[in-house]
Amino acid sequence: MKNLLFLILAMTITSLVSAQTDTLVVKTSVLCDECKERIEHDLSFEKGIKSNVVNLDTKEVTVVYNAAKTDPQKIRVAITKIGYSADTLKADQKAFNKLPLCCREPGHEN
């Protein structure tokens, strides 16, 4: 019990006093809620990524990241490997083929 409260407290503090972060906005080829969920989930596991939110209307991913651990190009490449385009980079074909049906409309790999 005590340990758990301590853990919660510790998590709260670490997320408040976080390291120097930068923000990057990437244009991408999302189409539906499933694409949004997929990018947000998968991208959150990339090194140095603090948070990321996909906006379906503007087709943009807003990424907050630790500049000491990653850089914009690495983040764009990570997005292409999930199966979506990232600014000028095309989606990885293999990853694209594995996407849910509603994210796979032809012409959206780039």
Binding site: L7, S44, F45
Partner: peptide, 15 residues
């Protein structure tokens, strides 16, 4: 009941 999720959604706590 207290529920907490980290910002990156990688941890969830519930009490």
């Amino acid at each position: 009941n207290i529920g907490f999720e980290t910002q990156n959604n990688h941890w969830r706590f519930d009490y």
